[in-house]
Design a protein around this nucleic acid. Sequence first.
DNA 1: TTGTAGGCGTTATCAA
DNA 2: TTGATAACGCCTACAA
Lengths: 335, 335
Amino acid sequence: MDQVAEAAGVSRATVSRVINGATTVDAKIREIVERAIAETGYVPNVAARSLVTRKSNSVALVISEPDRPHDSSFLNRIFTDPYFGRITAGATGALRPHDIHLVIIPTDSADHHHVLRYLRQGHVDGVLLISSHEQDPLPRQVHELGIPAVVSARPASPLAASFVDVDQRLGARLAAEHLLARGCRRLATISGPLDIPSGQDRLDGFRSYLANRGLAGVPTVEGDFTRHGGEEGARRLLAEHPGIDGLFVGNDLMAEGALRAVQDLGRRVPDDIAVVGFDDSSAALDCRPLLTTIRQPVEEMAAEMAEVLMAHIASPGRLPRSVTFQPTLVLRDSA
Amino acid sequence: MDQVAEAAGVSRATVSRVINGATTVDAKIREIVERAIAETGYVPNVAARSLVTRKSNSVALVISEPDRPHDSSFLNRIFTDPYFGRITAGATGALRPHDIHLVIIPTDSADHHHVLRYLRQGHVDGVLLISSHEQDPLPRQVHELGIPAVVSARPASPLAASFVDVDQRLGARLAAEHLLARGCRRLATISGPLDIPSGQDRLDGFRSYLANRGLAGVPTVEGDFTRHGGEEGARRLLAEHPGIDGLFVGNDLMAEGALRAVQDLGRRVPDDIAVVGFDDSSAALDCRPLLTTIRQPVEEMAAEMAEVLMAHIASPGRLPRSVTFQPTLVLRDSA
DNA sequence: TTGTAGGCGTTATCAA
DNA sequence: TTGATAACGCCTACAA
């Protein structure tokens, strides 16, 4: 910076002003300084800057996955589920205009410790926390750190933190309505993990809507949000209830697997069995037939999380708030 | 830190020594200081530290994906292909013991600019660059930045940079050998994108081995390393060459799609058509039948990249070097 | 509008 | 083995 100042014949303070876009600098001088910056190839030192501003201009995207001992690794799950790509895309898009970097941090419980340390050390100004597991202690721990944070869904236990969610029960209800509307009467469902609020809520929403219309006792199996889990679930379901004519599956990945199993077992989709998924992720388009599903506006939700987080960072005293998005039915070929 | 020093009745310098594990500090004093640290809940300020050490203790994992206009988004591809999960796992594992953070940065060409700026600003001490695309300018640009870097594969155009790779041609040859050994004579292949060196090399390796044994003119279609591309490729291949009895597919994801198509078309696997994939990723286990494939030790390769990078960071003058791993055949049920 | 000077929280050098 | 003290590179009152 001294170099630039010298080359431009001004003081370091002026160089600093130019860099930070202060309005109180003469147009001519600004230009001279900018040229000097270009010529010297000067790049500000972020460490020095954040030492004084106490800002890092980056936020963490912490993706906390529960331990599933029989699964290979949580990283495999994260880098295999299109959901996280959408989250990342949405958050990046919202942060980019503000010149804020997104630091992606996948974690399972074994390294919560590292993550907390990372956050405590002040590497980032705030946290976007994607945590689905009901027992996950991370949301509370992050909250106790006192660092600005926004959670991806209603926390399992009440927490004075901002969160963004979709109306899960409404989504499930849309699926039920659609299946009923197209004439299905023997419905069943493959739910997500019941220790994950979204898995639980979608199941509840589906069942309670049907129960209110006299259709109680819907056959249910619990899946794990993976393609394989959906395949297994469908097989079990059809083995015990061969007469099923409508199936609601807790997410698209499982629906993809279920679709395959259903067709392997000789049922036509949607004629014999209509199938509705949940998410409207890229997996819905990998399905044959194309998957009718409940759209969750994940990118927009992630962007909203980022906006709320930036607001918290800008004014630390701000009260927590929650934003809920509405799901919609996306009609394709499977139902 | 002043607080800690006061609480412990020592100077800041001593506190610093304790924190950094200097051996030149009295055991008793060390203990007192440590207690003071615990009591005050002191956490070092990383910005101040890296301002003076000129180290950030973190490295970037830059995942550079080529633009594929007809695909939804590069993030979707990255968070959908198990390959990147394995890379991340391997790199994290190697870095963790050294207390170095991994900053994951997915990018397509539209934001190379941001990435380069990020690197130039000194946020990280070095770069692990995952770049497959032949025309990708990023490896060269990163190299010109002068920041320590290790690339994930032999760069398309010669570059004085360290890289880690697997012997792609040998892998393809193993596949060919195996198919021949089990009696297949009418072989075909679905290659990866030919503008990606690994796609090209696997194809070359497969064809040239066969050509040397009098089997030239192997039917070939080019795929895109996605499940869907594999499905399409297999359909095209079988439409034109219905007599095929052995198929080598450029990666497991495509093999999964191909397997589905082949069986949809009424062929039994492996009896009518034997199928060999490449990678040994988790997708191989999602296949039915389980996929026989060429194992690429991705985790170990990523770990090696990290080791080499740390060596470069430790001694900046170090000459670039390349490390090549050997692929192996993993026998399962599809061939 | 510009320059001067002090301080941000560490580490590192040098004496003691 | 410990303690002063000087950087590290930047921002920001405050003074000019």
